[in-house]
Write a protein that binds this DNA or RNA. Structure first.
Length: 466
DNA sequence: CTAGGGTTAG
C-alpha cells in the first residue's frame, strides 16, 4: 500500500464528511492553480497606504503579536495589493501573529480571503488554519482541511498530525487521539516526534491515566524518541495529582541524571503535590532546591504556595510570599489576595485582611463586592459592626452596590450587639432604597426583634414588608 | 512561519 493511499484511509475515520460545507467554502483553494486571478483584484478592499518602514515594522510585529487588530487587518489588505506578491511565509507570519492573540476566527476568515483572491498557500498556512479550527473546538473542520492538503498535492507533516491529535485532546477525545496516533505509526505515515508523544501524554494526564502515561514515557525511548523536559513535567504532574509524590521525585532524579534540567513548571507540580499532602517540610526543601538551581519563582508557583499557606492557616506566610513577589515585579492576580483575606478573616484578624486589601490596591487591582463582603462579614463576626458599616459605605462610594446579603450581615451584627433600634432603622433604609428583603432578611429581623421581646414590632415589621 | 507542559473563588 502506498503512503498516499494509507493517508486517504485515515480520513473517513476522523472526518464526518469530506464534502462538508467548509470544503465547499474553500473551493477555490482546493482547485486553484496558484495563479493570481486578475479579475478578482477589483474587489480587493482599499486601505490607506502605509509607509514602507511602517510596513516592515508591522511585518515584524506579526511575529510577536500585534498591538491592535486593526494593524493586522490593514497590513493584510496591503499585502493583498502588493505586486509582486510577498512570499507565503509573510502571510503565514501574519496568521501566526493572530493566533498568538487568540484571534482564531479572524485568522480563518483571512485565510478564506486568501483563498478567494487565489493567494498561494503552503502546508504551514494550512497547519495554522487547522490549529485555529482545533482551538475553536472544530477538530472536524481540521480534518476537512487535511483532505484539502491531500487534494492540493501537499504532503502533511508531523506538525499537521500533531495539531490534529492535540485538537482531539482539546475536545477530550483522548481515545480518538490515541487511535489516530497508533494509526500514524501503523501506516508509517509520519514518525511521531517528541511533541506527538507529549500531546498524548498530556491527554492521558487529562483523563487521569497515570499508569499509561508512565508506560508511554518508557515506550517512547524504545522507539528511539528521547523524552524532553515537557514529557517529564507532564508525567510528574500526573503522579503528583495522584498523590504519588515520591514516585514523582524519582522521575525528577531520573531526568536530572539524563541531563534534562527541571524548570519552574516541574517544581510547580511537585510543590502542589506535597502541599496537598500537607508535607510542608518537603515544600520548603523543594523551594531551597529551586534557589540552588537558580530557578526563579513565577506567578503560577507563587499562587500555589500562597494558596497552600492559607489552607494551612498561615496567611502571614502567604502574605510574605506576595510581598516578595511584588518587590520582584511579579503581580499576583486578585484571587490570591482574596485567599489571603479569607485566611485572615477565618482567624478573626480582619484588620490584617484590610491591610491586604491596601496591598492589592497598590498593585492596581480593585476589590469587587465579594471581597468587601468577606471583610464585612469578618468584622460583624468579631462584633465590630461599625467597621463593617464603614466598609459598606466605602463600597457604595466606589460604585459597588451592597447586595441584600451584605445588609443582612450587618443587620444581623447589629442585633447581636443589642443595637436593636439601629438594626431596625437599617432594615427600613434598605427597603426604602429599593432592595427587596429575602427570606434570610425576614428571619434575621424576626429573630432579632423576638429575642428582645419586641413582639409587636416583629409582627408589624413582617406585615410591612409582605 | 506551523505542533506540546504548571495555579485558582464565590
Amino acid at each position: 500500500m502506498s503512503i498516499r493511499n494509507a493517508s486517504f484511509k485515515l480520513l473517513p475515520l476522523f472526518s464526518s464528511s469530506l464534502f462538508s460545507p467548509l470544503v465547499l467554502h474553500f473551493h477555490s483553494i482546493i482547485y486553484s492553480n496558484n495563479n493570481i486571478n486578475t479579475n478578482k483584484n477589483d474587489h480587493i478592499p482599499h486601505s490607506n497606504p502605509t509607509q514602507p518602514h511602517l510596513q516592515q515594522f508591522l511585518l515584524e510585529k506579526s511575529q510577536l503579536g500585534f498591538d491592535k487588530l486593526e494593524d493586522a487587518l490593514n497590513l493584510f489588505v496591503e499585502m493583498l495589493h502588493m505586486r509582486p506578491l510577498l512570499p507565503v511565509m509573510k502571510f503565514n507570519q501574519l496568521l501566526a501573529g493572530l493566533v498568538k492573540m487568540k484571534q482564531y476566527s479572524l485568522a480563518v476568515s483571512l485565510f478564506s480571503d486568501m483563498c478567494y483572491f487565489s493567494i498561494p498557500v503552503d502546508v504551514s498556512t494550512l497547519n495554522t488554519v487547522i490549529n485555529c479550527f482545533c482551538r475553536l473546538y472544530r477538530v472536524d473542520y481540521g480534518f476537512s482541511l487535511l483532505a484539502v492538503i491531500f487534494k492540493r498535492g501537499f504532503v502533511p507533516t508531523v506538525v499537521t498530525y500533531n495539531t490534529l491529535v492535540s485538537g482531539l485532546v482539546l475536545r477530550d477525545q483522548v481515545v480518538e487521539a490515541e487511535r489516530l496516533f497508533r494509526m500514524l505509526i501503523m501506516f508509517g505515515e509520519v514518525e511521531p516526534s517528541v511533541v506527538t508523544y507529549n500531546i498524548i501524554v498530556s491527554g492521558l494526564r487529562k483523563t487521569g491515566q497515570t499508569f499509561e502515561a508512565v508506560n508511554l514515557l518508557k515506550s517512547m525511548e524504545k522507539r528511539g524518541c528521547e523524552p524532553d523536559s515537557v514529557t517529564y513535567n507532564t508525567v510528574i504532574d500526573c503522579l503528583c495529582k495522584e498523590k504519588l509524590v515520591d514516585h514523582a521525585l524519582d522521575l525528577l532524579g531520573e531526568m536530572c541524571n539524563r541531563g534534562i534540567l527541571p524548570d519552574v513548571m516541574t517544581y510547580t507540580s511537585l510543590i502542589q503535590g506535597f502541599c496537598n499532602l500537607n508535607r510542608l517540610g518537603d515544600v520548603a526543601r523543594l523551594l531551597r532546591e529551586m534557589d540552588v538551581r537558580n530557578i526563579l519563582p513565577d506567578v503560577y508557583i507563587c499562587s500555589v504556595i500562597v494558596d497552600a499557606y492559607c489552607r494551612e492557616g498561615m496567611p502571614e506566610a502567604g502574605e510574605c510570599v506576595v510581598k516578595t513577589m511584588i518587590q520582584r515585579g511579579v503581580y499576583p492576580p486578585a484571587i490570591t489576595y482574596t485567599k489571603l483575606m479569607d485566611g485572615y478573616c477565618f482567624r478573626g484578624e480582619v484588620d490584617r485582611a484590610v491591610a491586604v486589601l491596601y496591598i492589592m490596591r497598590s498593585t492596581g487591582l480593585a476589590p469587587d463586592s465579594y471581597v468587601y463582603n468577606i471583610l464585612i462579614d469578618g468584622f460583624c463576626r468579631m462584633h465590630k459592626v461599625d467597621k463593617a458599616i464603614e466598609l459598606s459605605r466605602k463600597m457604595s462610594a466606589e460604585g459597588l452596590k451592597p447586595a441584600i446579603e451584605t445588609y443582612n450581615t450587618i443587620i444581623h451584627g447589629l442585633f447581636q450587639m443589642g443595637r436593636t433600634v439601629e438594626a431596625q432603622k437599617l432594615f427600613y433604609l434598605m427597603v426604602n432604597e429599593g432592595n427587596k428583603p429575602n427570606t434570610a432578611s425576614c428571619r434575621i429581623l424576626l429573630d432579632g426583634l423576638l429575642k428582645k421581646q419586641y413582639i409587636d414590632e416583629g409582627i408589624s415589621g413582617i406585615h410591612d414588608i409582605s
